[in-house]
Design a protein around this nucleic acid. Sequence first.
RNA 1: CGCGGGGUGGAGCAGCCAGGUAGCUCGUCGGGCUCAUAACCCGAAGGUCGCACGUUCGAAUCCUGCCCCCGCAACCA
Length: 649
Amino acid sequence: MKYYITTPIYYPSGKWHIGHCYTTIICDAIARFHRMKGEDVFFTTGTDEHGQKVEKEAAKRGVTPLAFITPLVDEIKEMWSLLDVSYDRFIRTTDPAHAECVQKIYQKLYDSGDIYKSEYEGYYCVPCESMWTEAQLVNGKCPDCGRAVERRKEESYFFRLSKYAPKILKHYGDNPEFLQPKSRVNEMVNNFLKEGLQDLSVSRTNVKWGVPLPFDERHTAYVWVDALINYLSVLGYLSADDSLFKKYWSANLHLMGKEIVRFHAIIWPAILMALGLPLPERNYGHGWLLIGGEKLSKSKETGSEELTDPYELVKRYGADAVRYFLLREIPFGSDGEYTNERFLLRVNADLANDFGNLVSRTEAMILQNFGCVPQRGKEEAVDKELIALANGTFAKVESAMEKLNAPDALSAIFALVSRANKYIDETTPWALAKDPAKKDRLGAVLYNLAEVVRMTAILLKPFLTKAPALVLKSLSQDENAGFEALQFGGLKGGEKVEKLEPLFPRIDVKKEMQAVAEFVRANRKKSEPKKTEKKQETMKKELITIDEFDKVEIRVGEVVACEKVAKSEKLLHETVRIGGEVRSVVSGIGKFYTPEEMVGKKVVVVTNLKPAKLCGVLSEGMILCAEDGEGNLSLVSPEKLMESGGSVR
RNA sequence: CGCGGGGUGGAGCAGCCAGGUAGCUCGUCGGGCUCAUAACCCGAAGGUCGCACGUUCGAAUCCUGCCCCCGCAACCA
């Protein structure tokens, strides 16, 4: 049986946090699970490297897009290797074979009439060089700069998405597995499919860094279509050698974060339908890791002291701990809170105290009393209960994993670990050891424990990549064993047992949390001065003339009213009197000043900055602040009492 | 009335679809044990299941209304 499983391909931003690892680690555990069942698994991941963002960043640095992006791709590959991600193929959208596949697919759809040329009508802001839809405009003006926009038509190629809406709806109905969890189906149906779909613009003329369309080189492929096609191109679809495609398509599982479900559940099936290909069996949109209720990327900006850097986490606690936390702690399908404390408590309680300690005490007693695995003995009622649980655990793990529910699978395994720890208390092997007449019973008890340890190690192999192999090796067992080795009784007795170092050293949570908080703070300080250095460098580079400086109009103003901008974190909305004029100004200083203390302050304002809307509030100027290396802000004000309206130069 | 998801002991979650003793993990407190990584085992305290109304012999679960949080969506000038 074959099993084709994919992660989305990632945009290599370089700012990695464990949220990024979440999808990939779950996929990896699922892939390993199926491999251990003896299935023919193909597991892919990769990077999404085209688009305007990359183009602009590269230009800023004066390098080619590919030269800019490649080190970042190497970084993500290193991260996957640190976390033992067992992908079979890594695809980059800049691989020539991928680009070729994209072109062939566009050509195919163009030939069949599913892609056609038309015009895209929108509102164009000339200074911003941006096209906006009617819904994006703010009071009919450009949402970026607040200036007037003009209605404009732009040539674009469209994909007949509209045609497929009814078919997709029907597919959802006929295949309840297709999109999970169920709540996502409601979201897609109610928000998009029910009202019918609009044809999708699938080409861009303003983005050069992309795959050029074969039938019109002035256009590049829309990045989302480009990216989705990776699931086919990685299998060699439409290439000279499409054996992988023949063998593995369609996908058994596309796993992704909930934010991109729309693309996978609507656009992707429509494209596949247009190509006449079978649809993926299952799409699953999982939840996010949150810090204080916010997405990780956001909370990073707002300065939380949680350690989220995967490299550092692996360095401190090991790949197994990071994998375990992600797989065990986050309720699958919904969002989950991340804190260092929860991470440490979870790892301590389960891996160190329960599992690691079980292995340690079992092997210690075997070595003290027998030196090798004892013979299987006569079974009493307690033994039978333990053995039955051990033999029944795989079925529970399998049924959880069929639902992709790693937390449930792991909790079934740890129920066995727990039962074994309790079994030790019930059978009191240390007491048996004191009575030579009970040597046989002692042997039987320790054999049962050794078996449970062996089986637990095998059960844990899809989830953890280091500890299970060590445990199996220490019992002289094949570390590559699959699930077929799970029947109780696998140990024959007499196997050499090797003393292990503690698998998961216990962490002093309080101390560690302090250390982590210090580390995060120190790291932030380290990275911030760099930013200011860079700023200074660019200042040096770009000398300006006095005339240019003269273009900036700066005046003294007085804050007459101030309030927090609703729904924003740092934005304050000030009403500033500048001479006879009163202006509305929004500034990002909410972390450092309260609205109350702002009122009455003399401030220095750039008054000829083009107006903009921030969080929907009009800002007609910029209040000047000094910023230190740590991002602390201080208002700049005239050193002697000055009338509002006075100019600054 | 935009659309979804959520509100359950101190923390994080399960239970809800198919009403009937409110469960799990962590934390707290007490006890046991000493093989083991001060780990393990047992017990206890702690909940008006967001609020209100209704259906029912009986509601965390079903109905209706409301409140709060989050995402889809403009944020650090």
